[in-house]
């Protein structure tokens, strides 16, 4: 990465306190279009809080977040949730698929919510299941597939509406190494092909090794060398 392109998403001076617990003290982070950024650091250092702030899920107490020239921190809740639905994708450690829907319906859901007709939504969803090498579980429910398959379905769902940023918080945390690597290989291949950026929270270095760059969060503090102009 060179320092000449402006970042797609940047947070500066972020602070967030829960009661008496300082989760973020002074966090700075940026990610460029198409970049896979690993966010590392010890447990409790504030990685997930930082990801939630950047994604507009949690409002920081102080600091600024700018996405594609727009200030996230100044948007209304409605604008922010529309942005999240259209331009962001999410993968978490587990529990993100709707248990009553089939895997295909789960992946089609973001498109349906955006008003796309069922047939077209499911056609595109099937394509993503195929790319994530889980076409065979399309008609099963999440409870009927393995952890690794479920996680690849979740990745398909995070990518189906072609987001510009994918937020992944410990996406391989519940998987063994072989399945974790498979998820990482397919996730990064798919986002690189689509030109989407990834903010990847992980404490596993072998997972972080799939990134282009890393930042480290310690005691709620992070510095991003790319932002020091």
């Amino acid at each position: 990465m060179n320092g000449t392109t402006t970042p797609l998403l940047a947070g500066t001076g972020l602070r967030k306190t829960y009661g008496a617990t300082p989760a973020l003290v002074d966090a700075t982070i940026c990610v460029r279009a198409g970049e896979v950024l690993a966010v590392m650091g010890p447990s409790g250092s504030g990685k997930s809080t930082l990801l939630h702030c950047l994604a507009g899920i949690v409002a920081p107490d102080a600091g600024r977040i700018v996405y594609d020239g727009r200030e996230l921190t100044a948007m209304s809740d409605r604008e922010r949730s529309a942005l999240r639905r259209r331009e962001f994708g999410f993968v978490f450690q587990f529990g993100q698929l709707v248990p009553e829907l089939t895997c295909l319906e789960n992946v089609a859901l973001p498109l349906r919510l955006d008003g796309l007709k069922r047939r077209e939504a499911e056609r595109r969803a099937a394509g993503w299941l195929d790319r994530l090498e889980v076409a065979d579980v399309a008609d099963k429910r999440p409870g009927e597939v393995s952890g690794g398959q479920g996680q690849r379905v979740a990745v398909a769902r995070a990518l189906v509406h072609q987001p510009r940023v994918v937020f992944a918080d410990e996406p391989t945390g519940a998987l063994d190494s072989l399945n974790g690597e498979r998820v990482m290989r397919l996730l990064t291949r798919a986002t690189r092909e689509a030109g989407a950026a990834v903010v990847l929270v992980t404490h596993e270095t072998r997972v972080a090794a799939y990134s282009d760059r890393e930042i480290v969060v310690r005691d709620g503090t992070s510095h991003d060398a790319e932002l020091v102009a």
Partner: peptide, 16 residues
């Protein structure tokens, strides 16, 4: 750690 991670990235790319 940055140096180690750099080498891990190379190996990961080669592996992929």
């Amino acid at each position: 750690r940055a140096e180690h991670l750099r080498l891990m990235r190379d190996l990961t790319r080669r592996k992929t």
